[in-house]
Design a protein around this nucleic acid. Structure first.
Lengths: 246, 246
DNA sequence: CGTACCGCCTTGGAGTCCCAACTTTACCGA
DNA sequence: TCGGTAAAGTTGGGACTCCAAGGCGGTACG
């Protein structure tokens, strides 16, 4: 079994074990490529490949010019679901509850719905929609991206958002002002590789996936708003409660 | 910006674009290493690196001896939360609802709680617990792993599970028989790189992350059972409903 | 007609070199 | 003591090369 494994796996397993048992504690430097080739008597390719695998697993991080280091195991911020979430700041409350100051900026503009957006909002292709993009920051780092779409028709029930003040009312508030009741909020969550733009904005190391939360605010069977919420998979966990049944 | 990028990125972006716009439809063969080196006039390293990146992103899959192919975009099975889930077959119902026949096998044994299990069950290290491991299959593929732990003390309120029949009663049923009421079920979800054993059992291609669902059945502030549910991140999405608020 | 086999191609593992960009450190001079 | 600089070490991109294992198609043989 472990006789004719690829050589680089030997290195990976050895280092992984040392990280697991604390021989290499968080922050500790990993032997360099040159050192690994000597100690394990393997070629540079194997040493390099081993480091790349461990980096992809999120166990170590490489710094150009300096070395590879054991990654501090990042705290997984809870993303509490199952209670109402502030429309304009989906996770700000969570972060602030954790003692962090969260800030965000956002920008709205009117665009025409593409295929996907039209399908999810159940409107025709090309229907005017208001798109709002949010970037959330906490601890000085970008933590979350969000993009929401609502039919421009509905957006008009309130004033178009004003970037300066951030004073736009939340969607449920605006809807209820217009006599529309939000009857359900549904979310669909999956994990995927970040798109280049997302890696950029969230400052993601390679190998980190994102949690993609697709949220829909419903009024009966009519979608009022859809949101795509993107968070780094290595910094957040979803937490929710299920009603116990028989 | 796009002037002095790494060479391999040019190849990655070109191929990614062709996959996105349908020039390379799902199942289509990707040019081989040799062909890429010629067409893009790059070295083999760059061609190889580009293919590895695309494979890690889950866009293509490599088959030894045959070639690289555009991956069929996998259906994301919904994992419905927010209603009661059958203890012994967490997701079987979901899969069957989708028209798939789900099967599973499981095995129970009594072990002593390690640090993590003890912490989560709020018992002392070394406390006897019943560990049950499940492997779920659907469409002939392993789809889900689950491991549950309950204090042996509680497990004794019902007969120890019998692998042959699968006739063990669900946890809530056994608990209510013992006069204990499940008051809450909480889950915490995060995404991470699969452990080697998980990759193996779930037959995961490299680059695919898993969704790790940690579930706790509570009776007041006393944990009755903890479960770790592992599903491939590229085949499932979590779906749930939030109660709309003000 | 069916099957076994051979040769070509492809992936993935591995080794060796080279180089640019960057960090860290040590040293030297003011 | 302090600041600047140079040297050494490290990552990440890249080019070549060799090889084993495995898929695939065509051919030849029974």
């Amino acid at each position: 079994m472990t006789g004719n494994d690829p050589v680089y796996l030997r290195v990976v397993e050895e280092l992984r074990a040392q990280i697991a048992d604390g021989t290499l504690p968080p922050g500790a430097p990993i032997p360099s490529r040159a050192q690994l080739t000597q100690r394990f008597r393997v070629g540079e390719t194997a040493a390099r490949h081993a480091l790349r695998v461990l980096a992809a697993e999120g166990l170590i991080i490489g710094r150009v010019g300096s070395g590879h280091y054991v990654r501090e195991k990042s705290v997984l911020y809870p993303l509490q679901r199952g209670r109402h979430l502030d429309h304009d700041a989906p996770f700000a409350a969570d972060l602030q509850a954790g003692g962090h100051r969260a800030t965000w900026d956002w920008r709205s503009e009117q665009v025409r719905a593409g295929r996907e957006v039209a399908r999810r909002l159940r409107v025709a292709d090309g229907t005017p929609v208001v798109r709002t993009r949010y970037v959330f920051r906490a601890e000085g780092r970008p933590m979350q991206l969000a993009t929401s779409y609502e039919p421009a028709e509905l957006g008009r029930t309130g004033p178009l958002p004003d970037e300066g003040t951030g004073a736009r009312k939340s969607l449920p508030a605006r809807m209820s002002a217009a006599g529309i009741k939000v009857t359900d909020v549904r979310e669909s969550v999956h994990t995927r590789v970040p798109q280049p733009a997302e890696s950029d904005l969230l400052d993601l190391p390679t190998g980190v996936h994102v949690l993609h939360i697709e949220r829909t605010h419903w009024s009966g069977d009519r979608p009022l708003e859809i949101s795509d919420i993107i968070v780094p998979g290595d910094r957040f966990r979803l937490v929710y409660s299920l009603p116990p049944g028989s």
